[in-house]
Design a protein around this nucleic acid. Structure first.
Length: 459
RNA sequence: GGCUAGGUGGCAGAGUGGUUAUGCAGCGGCCUGCAAAGCCGCGGACAUCGGUUCGAUUCCGUUCCUAGCCUCCA
């Protein structure tokens, strides 16, 4: 089987073939850095990090994830807080990478920033004006949607219907309601750069077109982001890039992840249910969050809840429980391969729930097996699959020891276990059970096995 | 209102034109001094109404419902 991916433009799953054999270019729309990332922002980061890991197995991948560091929301945050823009963006760029890092998201190969690509944007806008796809009006430069007959193809929108149904107030300088801003003027207080159209700043969409071209080329293989970016952001990027490049395809595969809700309701500031990753990682292990995000197929809607967190934790308990106590040499670990069943699942449009199912099958076989060599082989395979999904990165003992400093310390637990063992040896089960009760009260569960008793901290 | 996705067992969540998803929870059994973990087994599902078909949860259409987009948004 070969990799197939669901392409938004074609609306179906298609076999993946990169433009250049053996190499893949991928661009993901990253954060606008004016606040901490919320759990909804984390979904594309985790999902496409997983895709990047998978692609790196077979291709030389160049993965770019941009940072939008010029934006009216940032300007507003600066005014509201009284802090300079640079300070705000620097702070939240670091917070974003720290928080995503806690979820096992690896840094992309390139992390281009909008403010460092103003020149490229001005160049592309100039090209669009010269070629008749954009016009200057009232110190703005606008993309002329009517000059691009393909406009609306990605988001499957009919331009005429959109114009007819437009409810928003149309800026007077626009020729058509659907025209969008490439460049807009800045006041003295706002960030701005000199341009052929006066001092100003870029519109939202142009940065991705300009940065994708600079770092990945005129035609990129994969362009990814959240479903809500399909329109207008990606539709506009597509229009700009295609028109600036004389019709050369912009992205060969458009990938969009489904939306995330919280307790079945939309996450929104007004409802006060915006869940920041920055806060969540304080009480929930990063791998649990990551697995909760990968537990549903990336294009499906996902509802975030305590039950979803508990479910992910249970799944990790089961997988860690299977590989716990299986000693692997560094060589065994390094030479292990990812099972074909897991690869097959991921090749089918990144079917992570199916991949997990295959891992559980391996775990069951491992649990049943008494042969050390088979147990080691299976544990190594599960670990390798975990590497691909970005889970099972901890020492199983550490996983079950928990991360809470509260409660009994590990050596206290071990001392109690020793006393219990002694009581059991002399068949004083009342004493043994009283120790077990004492531990249970402290949130410790005992598991007796052939190799003696081991324990786990209840989360 | 328009567009685009969905509606699967108690919950989460894959998949398929006719035999098992899987995880959690529940029930029975094995193991255990008793538990826990693990193993074995069981129950329980494909929103609705039609159509195509020898046969549909799976294809087509209707209805209802949900979400996203149509305005900044992952």
């Amino acid at each position: 089987m070969t990799l197939s991916l669901h392409d938004t433009l074609q609306g179906r799953k298609i076999a993946f073939e990169p433009l250049t054999e053996g190499e893949v270019t991928m661009y993901l729309c990253g954060p606008t850095v004016y606040n901490f990332a919320h759990i909804g922002n984390a979904r594309p980061a985790v999902v496409f990090d997983t895709l990047a890991r998978f692609l790196r197995r077979s291709y030389k991948l160049t993965f770019a994830r941009n940072i939008t560091d010029v934006d009216d929301k940032i300007n507003k945050a600066s005014v509201d807080s009284g802090k300079p823009i640079d300070e705000i963006t620097a702070r939240f760029i670091k917070a974003y990478n720290d928080d995503m890092g806690a979820l096992g998201v690896q840094l992309p190969d390139i992390e281009p920033r909008a403010t460092q690509h103003i020149e490229e944007m001005v160049e592309m806008i100039t090209t669009l004006v010269d070629k008749g796809f954009a016009y200057e009006a009232d110190a703005h430069v606008l993309f002329d949607v009517s000059a691009n007959p393909d406009y609306g193809k990605l988001s499957k929108r009919d331009l005429r219907e959109m114009i007819a149904g437009a409810r928003v107030e149309v800026a007077p300088y626009k020729r058509s309601a659907q025209d969008f801003v490439l460049w807009k003027p800045s006041t003295a207080e706002l960030p701005g750069w000199d341009s052929p159209w006066g001092r100003g700043r870029p519109g939202w969409h142009i940065e991705c077109s300009a940065m994708a071209e600079k770092h990945l080329g005129k035609t990129i293989d994969i362009h990814a982001g959240g479903q809500d970016l399909v329109f207008p952001h990606h539709e506009n990027e597509l229009a700009q890039s295609t028109c600036a490049h004389d019709g050369a395809p912009f992205a060969r595969y458009w990938l969009h992840n489904g939306f995330l809700s919280i307790d079945s309701t939309k996450m929104s500031k007004s409802l006060g249910n915006v869940l920041l990753v920055h806060d969540l990682v304080k009480s929930v292990p990063g791998e649990v969050i990551r697995l909760a995000l990968l537990g549903a197929h990336y294009r499906q809607p996902l509802d975030w809840s305590d039950a979803a967190i508990d479910g992910a934790r249970s799944m990790l308990d089961r997988l860690y429980g299977a590989i716990r106590g299986v000693e692997l040499s560094a060589q065994q670990r390094a030479s292990a391969f990812v099972p074909a069943t897991v690869i097959d699942a991921l090749e089918d449009d990144l079917n992570t729930p199916k991949a997990l199912k295959e891992m559980f099958d391996l775990a069951r076989t491992l649990n049943k097996s008494a042969a050390d060599d088979e147990r080691q082989r299976l544990a190594a395979e599960i670990q390798s699959a975990g590497d691909l999904l970005g889970i099972l990165q901890m020492d199983p003992e550490k996983w079950f020891a928990g991360h809470g400093e509260d409660g009994l310390a590990a050596d206290e637990i071990d001392a109690l276990l020793k006393r219990r063992e002694a009581a059991r040896a002399s068949r004083d089960f009342a004493a043994a059970d009283s120790i077990r009760d004492q531990l249970a009260e402290a949130g410790i569960t005992i598991e007796d096995g052939p190799a003696g008793a081991r324990w786990r901290r209840n989360q």
